[in-house]
């Protein structure tokens, strides 16, 4: 007899529950296995703020998402593998490379369809550029705050759930620790983290199948602050910039999102994407974990708000020109992607 199909809302609740369980397990595995990554990181030359920045950036490009890399950075901080400065750099770097997945999807589709103009990569390039323009001053401000002791007393205690974690995963973690070297444990942790985010994705409604996701109308230019709020809200549900930007695809395909609307949405998404990292910071239990994330979240908000409220069009024009220039030919796009990998490599090397 076939099993009855679960209602959609129950499937989503179960997906969120599974995602949370996997997320906590992943952080534990990463913490336990992080010691094994230390020599690898040092061997690669990952050292100091710039090393962390380059490594986080590169990892986000490789795993096609920023959030798991940020969570990894916090686990490495908790295990003592990374310093606070390196963790700060790695989390900031993870945001810089987070939108690479959107560029990859567009570029692959161009290749598949035999198009040579690279226009499908527009969204990815725009997201990467908009993020970089905001994050550079935000990082500088956050670094200043970090060195001046801002948010020093900030605590979000997540250690109370230690007992629950032990009850749930104690035997599994003990078994894994006893039978596997540390580096494979870390790799298992990465896998669990990616699965956790996959489960969160499954909990999201399928916007692609809907006719009217925002308003029952045709093509609209939304006010920048409205798209900023939409970006904030959507990413507070998806927890990932890459997922939020992927959601733009069905919206844009139906004409709900125009070029004018893209930048404020990205800026909003870049803020609430820190929510899961903040949660991870509370869970790993290191005193600087939450502080580093809170500092970045605050300064990114402080740099984004004036842009959205006072100069959204000038900012949009800057990003649009950059994205249009980088996607106007395969050569330009290749140069952009080369830069995307070369800059973090250089940051690691210095």
């Amino acid at each position: 007899m076939p099993l009855p199909r679960l209602p959609g809302w129950l499937q989503r609740v179960l997906a969120v529950g599974l995602g949370l369980l996997l997320f906590v397990l992943a952080l534990e595995l990463l913490k336990k296995g992080a010691g094994g990554l230390g020599p690898v990181l040092r061997g690669l030359g990952v050292e100091g703020f710039t090393g962390g920045l380059g490594f986080g950036w590169l990892m986000a490009c490789v795993v096609l998402s920023g959030s798991p890399v940020a969570a990894m950075a916090l686990s490495l901080l908790a295990s003592g593998t990374l310093t606070t400065a390196e963790t700060f750099g790695m989390i900031a770097g993870s945001r810089l490379g987070a939108s690479f997945v959107v560029l990859v999807i567009g570029a692959l589709d161009d290749l598949r369809a035999g198009r040579r103009d690279g226009r499908s990569a527009y969204l990815g390039v725009a997201a990467l550029s908009a993020t970089a323009v905001i994050y550079l001053p935000a990082m500088a401000l956050a670094w200043l705050g970090l060195t001046r002791g801002v948010f020093m007393g900030l605590r979000l205690e997540g250690r109370q759930i230690d007992g629950v974690v032990q009850a749930l995963y104690g035997p599994l973690l003990a078994f894994v620790l006893a039978h596997l070297p540390r580096l494979p444990i870390f790799v298992l942790g990465i896998g669990a983290l990616l699965l956790a985010f996959k489960a969160f994705d499954r909990a999201l409604p399928d916007l692609a199948g809907r006719e009217t996701p925002l308003l029952a109308t045709g093509s609209i230019f939304y006010r920048p602050w409205f798209m900023f709020v939409v970006g904030l809200l959507v990413t507070s549900l998806t927890l990932s910039v890459s997922v939020s930007l992927s959601l733009l695809v069905p919206l844009a395909a139906r004409g709900y999102v125009r070029r004018e609307n893209v930048c404020p949405y990205i800026l909003g998404a870049n803020i609430t994407t820190f929510i899961d990292t903040l949660f991870a910071g509370a869970l790993v239990g290191h005193p600087d974990g939450v502080r580093v994330v809170a500092l970045l979240m605050t300064t990114v908000t402080a740099c984004s708000l004036p842009v959205v409220l006072l100069a959204p069009h000038a900012f949009g024009r800057l990003v649009d020109r950059l994205a249009a220039r980088c996607t106007h030919s395969p050569r330009a796009l290749t140069l952009f992607v080369a830069g995307l990998f070369l800059i973090p490599l250089l940051l690691i090397a210095v």
Binding site: G106, L123, A252, R258
Partner: peptide, 9 residues
């Protein structure tokens, strides 16, 4: 035309 250029569309 200010539509975002998209894959699959």
């Amino acid at each position: 035309a200010s539509e975002v250029a998209l894959p699959h569309v």
